[in-house]
Design a protein around this nucleic acid. Structure first.
Lengths: 142, 142
DNA sequence: TGCTATCTGTTAGCCTGCTAATAGTTAGGT
DNA sequence: ACCTAACTATTAGCAGGCTAACAGATAGCA
């Protein structure tokens, strides 16, 4: 009969997916993606970081990190080193190629963000950021 | 050195993923997921709908619809019928089992939504909904 | 009429996320 | 000292999203 009402969850889901897909398509010529960029960002900002720490910071599960690092390492953007303190864990480090990519991809991501948020007031941005954080914290506390 | 700043895009992405994962986990005992639920919802609300129309309404690509319908049809929740007007297209219809599931899964999804949005004011909700819609429309116009 | 462009559903193949289960390692308690 | 619990990375296998490339059908125009 009628079309289903647009729920908050539905809009949130669709907006996030469209954003990611658009960034992926802009990053594709460089052989990259939103997920790889986020990983590179966290690796570059935190030296001697273990995979478990990366998973926690990115907010994803351990096997997701394993796969992402496998692909990044296959492109020589990143390398794993065995930790000296704990024989279980490995630390992750940016290689030369990965370092060189940081600037252009961060610019691309920032450009998209700036573009998408251009016609929003500071107030709108602050309000919606706060709301998203509240929902996220609620989800993390489940 | 320091941790990467939390961008709007990052929070949006993480919140949407956590929400979907939580709903997936609640729906799993029924053999369902957020994606399947959304598809069933649209099939049930629009009679004689073609796959292309479903893709447009869900905001996903055609191959995604194909896979989703394959899995739903394998569970006898849905069926495809060849269109009488156009030999290319097929219309999608809810089967008995699919119809029976609508109420419980919609309740589960609504419960989660209500729970997550409980501690937000009407103003916050309105503001952030408007913002998400603006961003989504911006993305769709690219 | 016939040719060309477009639309419809499908397949193949990839990425990124998940859960469950595993082996090896460390840490904690008795 | 030992035994159990917890943690680390990994594998295997799935879901759900995408693009590219396809065959068949339709539509539109010369």
């Amino acid at each position: 009969m009628g079309s289903p009402k647009e729920s908050f969850g539905g809009i949130l889901h669709e907006t996030a997916r469209l954003w990611r897909t658009e960034l992926d398509s802009r990053l594709r010529p460089l052989g990259l993606s939103q997920a790889k960029w986020r990983m590179l960002l966290h690796v570059s900002c935190s030296e001697n970081c273990t995979q478990a720490e990366l998973a926690a910071r990115l907010g994803v599960e351990a096997p997701t990190v394993v796969g992402l690092l496998d692909r990044l390492a296959a492109d020589d953007l990143v390398e794993r080193r065995e930790s000296t303190h704990d024989r279980r864990s490995k630390t992750v480090h940016l290689r030369k190629g990965g370092h060189a990519l940081m600037k252009p991809i961060t610019e691309m991501a920032d450009n998209l963000s700036t573009d998408l948020l251009a016609n929003l007031s500071a107030e709108e941005l602050a309000c919606s950021t706060a709301v998203l954080k509240k929902i996220r914290d609620r989800l993390l506390s489940l």
